[in-house]
Simulated scan of single mutants.
Amino acid sequence: MHPEVVADLESLNTTLTTVEKVMDLDELRSRIAELEMQASDPELWNDQDHAQQVTSRLSHAQSEMRRVTELRSRLEDLPVLYELVEMEEGEAQTAAQADADAERASLRADIEAMEVKTMLAGEYDEREAVVNIRSGAGGIDAADWAQMLMRMYIRWAEQHGYGVEVYDTSYAEEAGIKSATFVVKAPYMYGTLSVEQGTHRLVRISPFDNQGRRQTSFAEVEVLPVVETTDHIDIDENEVKVDVYRSSGPGGQSVNTTDSAVRLTHIPTGIVVTCQNEKSQLQNKASAMRVLAAKLLERKRQEERAQLDALKSDSGSSWGNQMRSYVLHPYQMVKDLRTNVEGNNPTAVLDGDLDEFIEAGIRWRMNDGEA
């Protein structure tokens, strides 16, 4: 093998070995065995929420084990591919060399993606994620832009096999949405998607302007960790004002016929949460309470972080403002303003091809941003 190839294989082995140590494969095997035992308990499904949590964690753990095992297997196979190259001649050797180099490049990308996952070690990183999207400046274009972002994240989740549950969609009058709240239901979604938080900017020729002028629109993305029973977020029912009303916008047969939509107002903080996507008022209230708890947990975390920041001389590490631009005219580009990662295919990104930007965001947070 060429010395450059040998050095690269050694580098890949070093990175993958570090990943395996951080993941602690022995502990992962034990966790899988424990979760398999819980999943086989016939009484597990007496508690639907707990059962779904167990099966989701088991599926995620098995997937992680499968991925790292496959990476190790592919790395061990690479020297054999290069040995086969040396046995060929002429055009066959050229083709075999190209195949081996392509597999090495693909393996490097997959190992680096796995390495990024090991960086998710924050207090709430392993939680599922509550995603809130709100239209900002830009009128009808901003409402359309908010709906495009919602579709982008749901498409990304679907492509990875992650479940999504939409809690609330507030439709704008002409097109698009004023706001939406949905949960991405898989482990480590908060740690993964929290780097998407901030203001997203779209530049394009407005489809709503009969003069075909260029329009800049803004939408805000907020990502919260799903609250668990260990978080001690106690909500006094006497401090929550509950309003019920008839759902609006597109929906199923029963959505618009009864007063099933619920609006919760947390009186001490002024936080308002709505949910209108379930059939019953009871289901909507339960979903809205989960989102309210997530918002109160985030408020508590921000207060604690503010106290810590007050002790630091450098407070310029915030990245919660404008963080990514999507340009559809006069040229095609998506650029992350924190990591400087950019691409020239915004259509693919808006169709859910987000991994490169998310992975770069996680690395940026680890190295330069907030821990």
Score class of each variant (00 low, 15 high):
T17I: 09
Y190F: 12
E173F: 02
T274N: 12
A98N: 14
A180N: 09
T192M: 06
L354S: 06
R72G: 03
F357A: 05
L84Q: 10
H60A: 11
E88H: 14
D24I: 00
H266Y: 05
L9Y: 06
E10N: 14
L75Q: 07
R338T: 03
N345W: 09
A348Y: 02
P250L: 00
V223T: 10
M119F: 14
S179H: 02
A261W: 00
V221P: 00
E112D: 14
V262F: 06
A310I: 07
Q62K: 15
A180I: 00
Q93L: 12
Q53G: 13
V227E: 02
V291Q: 02
E128G: 01
D209C: 11
T216M: 01
G361T: 09
G212K: 12
D26N: 14
I358V: 10
G316H: 08
G163E: 01
L264S: 04
N256L: 07
A186G: 05
A100C: 04
E43M: 14
P79D: 06
A129L: 07
A172M: 04
E370R: 14
A286L: 11
D41P: 12
L149D: 08
T265Q: 03
G212T: 09
G90E: 11
G139E: 00
R263M: 08
E10S: 14
G352L: 02
T15E: 15
V327L: 08
A310T: 10
M114K: 04
D231W: 04
R263Q: 06
R29G: 02
E76W: 00
A293G: 12
L71E: 05
T169S: 07
E304C: 13
Q97I: 06
D141E: 11
E115D: 15
I32D: 07
G161M: 08
N367E: 15
H266G: 08
N345F: 11
D234F: 13
L25N: 03
I177E: 01
G198Q: 00
E158Q: 13
L25K: 05
E196H: 00
E64M: 15
D41V: 08
E34L: 08
L149W: 08
D144T: 10
L44P: 12
T18M: 14
T258Q: 03
V116D: 10
E342T: 01
Y167T: 02
R31C: 10
A39E: 06
A102W: 04
R29Y: 10
G198E: 01
K117L: 15
V223C: 06
V184T: 06
V334L: 06
T265F: 07
D351K: 11
D351V: 10
L292W: 02
R67I: 09
S248L: 10
V5L: 15
R72K: 15
G198C: 03
A175Q: 07
I362P: 04
V80P: 04
E20C: 09
A113D: 07
E303V: 12
S194T: 10
K279S: 10
A293C: 02
L328S: 09
P3E: 04
V226L: 11
A39S: 09
S73F: 14
V244E: 07
R151M: 03
N345Y: 11
R214H: 01
V349D: 01
D101P: 13
W156E: 05
V183M: 04
L12F: 00
E103R: 09
L35D: 03
S280Y: 04
T339I: 05
A186W: 02
K335L: 00
V242A: 08
E83M: 09
P187H: 09
L282R: 01
E228I: 03
